[in-house]
């Protein structure tokens, strides 16, 4: 708390709410805190974080390791609990796994004993889709991510990039209104990552889904997002929120050479810099 009078936390929180005020809110966290005890120390993973994500928005959570961005995403997904505050999805408290979202993480959660087709069909099976619908949808989403023809291959036979695309397709195939992504392209080489940005941007523009995207890569955040939420570590807080007013569709490949883009990147870089060292894991 700042003795001079203005509470920086509330200022940021107010801006978070103001930005999204014009559109209906899909996801909302209010004064969200998560504290856990490790050995004898108390670790504050999230410290009174407040954020509203509007319907159809593309929001990036940007920050160094340990700033709580993944924790925040997991709370939104209903996979993690929290100590105090609120987490709401369409105005209702998130309880248990949030089945209205799609969830893509860094790690490979494909089922190795199922083929690509089988993996894609899994969410549809769970939701009781008919055989025809399953077949039609898997074909459509496979070609959407450029994997047509790989139906009967097992994940073990695919390269890393192909598996990531399959994971993306799987998170989309049951048409969730919101997509939560935790550094999904982190392990890919630069060229492949850019092409995945292109795919993601196209899908977002065509479907109007809400996307919350966690990353530590400034270029990625500026390239994809409407708003970038910069977080600081230890304790995990929102430092600032930057609105990215670049026209769409954005050139994901050559964007980095555009002065307007560079200006945003520099601002975000400076914002990150001032939050202190990102030292070892918390």
């Amino acid at each position: 708390m700042d003795d001079a009078g203005v509470d920086p936390m509330s200022a940021v929180a107010a801006e978070a709410r103001r930005d999204a005020a014009s559109l209906p809110t899909l996801l909302s966290v209010r004064a969200l805190s998560k504290v856990f005890v490790r050995g004898e120390r108390e670790v504050v993973a999230l410290d009174r974080v407040s954020l509203d994500v509007a319907d159809g928005e593309f929001v990036a959570l940007l920050g160094p390791s340990g700033c709580g961005k993944s924790t925040l995403l997991n709370i939104m997904a209903g996979l993690a609990d929290f100590t105090s505050g609120e987490a709401l999805y369409r105005g209702q408290a998130i309880r248990g796994a949030n089945t209205r979202v799609g969830y893509v993480t860094q790690s490979d959660t494909l089922l190795p004993w199922r083929t690509c087709q089988g993996n894609l069909e899994l969410p549809l099976e769970i939701r009781g889709a008919s055989k025809e619908e399953r077949r039609e949808r898997t074909a459509r989403y496979l070609s959407m991510v450029g994997l047509a023809g790989s139906e009967s291959h097992y994940p073990g036979e695919l390269s890393g990039g192909m598996r990531k695309r399959l994971l993306l397709a799987r998170s989309l195939i049951y048409d969730p209104e919101c997509l939560l992504m935790d550094e999904p392209f982190g392990a890919l080489d630069a060229q492949l990552r850019l092409s995945m940005h292109e795919v993601l941007q196209r899908i977002w523009m065509e479907t109007g889904k809400t996307i919350v995207f966690v990353t530590h890569d400034i270029d990625e955040a500026v390239s994809l997002a409407d708003r970038v939420v910069v977080m600081s570590a230890r304790p995990g807080r929102i430092k600032t929120i930057e609105r990215i007013d670049l026209p769409r569709p954005r050139d994901v490949y050559r964007g980095r050479y555009d002065p307007a883009v560079v200006a945003y990147q520099t601002r975000l870089f400076d914002a990150l810099d001032k939050t202190g060292e990102a030292d070892g894991p918390c």
Binding site: T99, Y103, S107, T109, L111, W113, P123, I126
Partner: peptide
Amino acid sequence: DRQLIDAVRIMGGSRRDLFVKVIAPSAV
């Protein structure tokens, strides 16, 4: 794998789904 289970829970998998589609084959 905890993450496999989480991923399938998000997809809407029930406890039975989890057992039949994830835990049992994984145990194979």
